[in-house]
Computed example of a mutant assay.
Amino acid sequence: MADPSKIIENEIEYSIGNFTGFEMIYDFDKILIYLDVKGKSLFGVDFKIHKGDEEVILKLCNYIVKDVKSCQKHDIDTEKNILLSGPVGCGKTSIFKLIQCIVPRQRAIEIIPCRNIVFGFNHLGYKIIEDYENGGNICFDDLGIEPYGSHYGRDCNVMGEILISRYELFLKSSFKTHATTNLDSKELEERYGNRVISRMREMFNLVSFNSETLDKRK
């Protein structure tokens, strides 16, 4: 059986904890070292993990490795999904891509820009919405800033409809529906309405970057 505490990156072995033979005990300090290396590999040599982001990364790591006790300390339910919020450029999408790397044996989470989904709806219509009822682990990226959809003159709040469909999937399956957003709860409610927001509250854990987090793309 392969040791899940060891990850090879560019022919170098990194430890992210200790595997006892039947239990994996993660070490967050070691995880940060590996994530910094992996981040540079994925996003370029200028990538670095900022001290102010470590609390968010810790919560996400605890969630993705299913550390129930640690998640409970941060009021995170491992049965729910993640809504990762924060200001523009704070690194939400990059961090979501990165944390998956510490659990390479888990089913991958596909990260899909919401605007691309709407463009697909404009071209193909309601088939796009139906496609997302069928499963898959997905993170909807930049939720709330996508345009409204229109197919042959019929307007549609595409992501609102998809979120309702994914809520039904959440109730009856183990497939995950995550999202990143720049908007706060009030802005999301204005965008999607109370019906969708009530379902989002039930299916998502909210994990937020500090509102003062710098735009790392500048």
Score class of each variant (00 low, 15 high):
residue 1 M to R: 06
residue 14 Y to I: 03
residue 19 F to I: 06
residue 20 T to F: 12
residue 21 G to K: 06
residue 23 E to C: 01
residue 25 I to Q: 09
residue 25 I to P: 00
residue 26 Y to F: 10
residue 28 F to H: 01
residue 29 D to V: 07
residue 31 I to T: 01
residue 32 L to F: 15
residue 33 I to A: 05
residue 35 L to Y: 11
residue 35 L to R: 05
residue 36 D to N: 14
residue 41 S to Y: 09
residue 43 F to V: 01
residue 45 V to C: 12
residue 50 H to G: 00
residue 51 K to R: 08
residue 52 G to M: 07
residue 52 G to P: 01
residue 55 E to K: 09
residue 59 K to V: 07
residue 59 K to W: 12
residue 64 I to E: 11
residue 64 I to Y: 12
residue 67 D to V: 04
residue 68 V to W: 04
residue 70 S to Y: 04
residue 74 H to K: 14
residue 76 I to Y: 13
residue 77 D to R: 09
residue 77 D to A: 03
residue 79 E to L: 12
residue 80 K to N: 06
residue 81 N to E: 13
residue 83 L to P: 05
residue 86 G to W: 15
residue 90 C to T: 14
residue 90 C to I: 09
residue 91 G to N: 05
residue 96 F to T: 03
residue 98 L to Q: 07
residue 99 I to R: 09
residue 100 Q to T: 00
residue 102 I to K: 01
residue 106 Q to A: 13
residue 108 A to M: 09
residue 110 E to Q: 11
residue 113 P to S: 02
residue 113 P to C: 02
residue 116 N to R: 13
residue 116 N to I: 08
residue 120 G to P: 06
residue 121 F to C: 08
residue 125 G to C: 05
residue 126 Y to C: 03
residue 128 I to Q: 02
residue 128 I to N: 00
residue 131 D to S: 08
residue 132 Y to S: 00
residue 132 Y to F: 15
residue 133 E to Q: 11
residue 134 N to Y: 13
residue 134 N to E: 14
residue 138 I to R: 02
residue 139 C to Y: 03
residue 142 D to C: 04
residue 144 G to S: 11
residue 145 I to Q: 00
residue 150 S to Y: 03
residue 151 H to A: 00
residue 153 G to E: 07
residue 154 R to M: 08
residue 156 C to E: 15
residue 157 N to W: 06
residue 157 N to F: 03
residue 164 I to L: 15
residue 165 S to V: 04
residue 168 E to Q: 13
residue 169 L to W: 01
residue 171 L to F: 01
residue 173 S to I: 10
residue 178 H to P: 03
residue 179 A to R: 10
residue 183 L to Y: 13
residue 184 D to R: 08
residue 186 K to P: 02
residue 186 K to Y: 10
residue 186 K to F: 09
residue 187 E to W: 05
residue 191 R to N: 01
residue 193 G to H: 11
residue 193 G to L: 13
residue 195 R to G: 00
residue 204 F to W: 14
residue 206 L to C: 10
residue 207 V to S: 04
residue 207 V to E: 03
residue 209 F to C: 02
residue 213 T to P: 14
residue 215 D to N: 15
residue 218 K to A: 09
